[in-house]
Simulated assay, not measured.
Amino acid sequence: MKKRMLILSSCLFAVCLFLTGCMHTTKEGVSNSDKSVKIGVLLPLSGGASSYGEEMMMVLKHKNAMLKNPAELHFEDSKCTASDAVSGFQKLVDLKSVDAILGGFCSSETLAIEPLLEQNNLVAISGTSSSPEIEGKSQNMMTLSYSDNVIAEAMAKHLAGSKNIAIITEQNDYNIALKNSLENLLGDKIIANEVFEKDAKDMRNIIEKVKQSSPDVLILNPNIGDTTTTLITQLAESKDYFKNIKLVSQETYVADSSRVGVEDLVEGMVLFAAPTLSDSRVDSFIASLPSSVDNLGVFYSATAHDALENLVRAVQDSRLNNTLVLDELRNGPLSGLVVKGKDFAGKNFVQGIEAGKFVVTKGKAVSQK
């Protein structure tokens, strides 16, 4: 009898050890599977792009509340600059001990934190960064956006029959990358190629230089934020000149609020940006968001949803499976509204995202499906 009890006790002890191992108990005696997931979020919460950062924060908080096991979200103000992104990253790592990073928001932020990811054994997913320079960087850095190369290719195709093209660009990683792509694709068709300083307040000298080149097409390439409005407003001061010139731009002028007061000038303006999403799940999520989320747009609201969903799932699965978070993200299809069923295929950009085309009509950016 004693022998049978001893065998039974040994078996029970072995089972307990097995279950304990499966639950990945920490030194503090708390199961890893029971610990909340900590996500560090880098967003521009001050500066010219703050309205977009604040709206994305609302989207992320809303999505997080929908999760079965909500994560701890820790926000840092990255201000759409490389230095502030690095500072925010270090705070999230050193003070909050986050499990993963959602960000950066701007490409300059994403490129700045990329070298720090492997050093700290962390992964990051951006829902918005689109600079082609991201491709080929650390596998720990991923983005759910399209690449600016996709936008440049769509613009070049649209302008295939055009000559005498001028470009006005803001000195910023995202915009310079798009400019470089356009230069490669348009070549000698570009007759004026002007760059203004980041966050500049006066672009009138550059506008005059463009006028002197007598372009048939003008590509406006400012960053999101205050310079978007400043550039188009100062361009409107020469409305009689530019009203006969074809205007083309990117994501920054899709929001109708970015073109208020210059409706006559921008009528017919062609925009290449995030694609239009036609999906009842997307519609349902967008309808559930606070009404104050009105500039971020459907696509980036949806990619914010997907970035958080996939990061939280990857951290949770890595604990259950005793695997790396990176492997969970890269070794299988993603979930969500935009990227469901898609993967990275060894790239930094999620594959299969195409450009959307819009035409400004009676004050509205109308999708050209």
Rank of each mutant, 00 (worst) to 15 (best):
residue 174 Y to G: 04
residue 232 I to H: 08
residue 355 A to D: 06
residue 245 I to P: 08
residue 200 A to T: 09
residue 126 S to Q: 06
residue 155 M to K: 11
residue 199 D to Q: 02
residue 281 R to N: 15
residue 314 A to F: 10
residue 309 E to V: 13
residue 185 L to M: 09
residue 123 V to F: 03
residue 172 N to R: 12
residue 163 K to H: 09
residue 142 M to P: 03
residue 363 G to A: 04
residue 321 N to G: 09
residue 352 G to S: 08
residue 152 A to G: 10
residue 111 L to Y: 04
residue 316 Q to C: 03
residue 345 A to C: 10
residue 277 L to W: 10
residue 339 V to Q: 09
residue 303 T to Q: 03
residue 215 P to C: 06
residue 147 S to G: 10
residue 265 L to M: 06
residue 63 K to E: 11
residue 60 L to R: 06
residue 169 T to P: 04
residue 257 S to R: 14
residue 192 A to R: 08
residue 237 E to C: 05
residue 44 P to Q: 12
residue 50 S to C: 03
residue 367 S to R: 00
residue 164 N to F: 07
residue 118 E to P: 00
residue 8 L to G: 06
residue 177 A to G: 13
residue 219 I to V: 15
residue 172 N to D: 12
residue 313 R to F: 06
residue 210 V to N: 01
residue 326 L to N: 00
residue 60 L to M: 07
residue 8 L to V: 13
residue 131 S to F: 00
residue 342 K to V: 10
residue 243 K to Y: 03
residue 86 V to G: 10
residue 264 D to W: 02
residue 330 R to K: 11
residue 35 K to C: 07
residue 28 E to T: 15
residue 358 F to R: 11
residue 227 T to G: 05
residue 252 T to H: 00
residue 296 L to M: 10
residue 142 M to Q: 06
residue 102 L to D: 04
residue 49 A to V: 12
residue 24 H to E: 13
residue 27 K to A: 15
residue 271 L to A: 05
residue 195 V to T: 15
residue 255 A to V: 00
residue 64 N to Q: 09
residue 312 V to S: 07
residue 32 N to M: 13
residue 248 V to Y: 03
residue 74 H to K: 07
residue 276 T to K: 15
residue 82 A to P: 07
residue 225 G to R: 02
residue 202 D to E: 03
residue 5 M to R: 09
residue 233 T to N: 14
residue 178 L to D: 11
residue 274 A to T: 12
residue 135 E to Y: 01
residue 207 I to Y: 10
residue 138 S to A: 13
residue 161 G to L: 09
residue 161 G to Q: 11
residue 62 H to I: 12
residue 249 S to P: 05
residue 36 S to L: 13
residue 274 A to G: 14
residue 167 I to E: 13
residue 145 S to C: 12
residue 311 L to N: 04
residue 100 A to L: 00
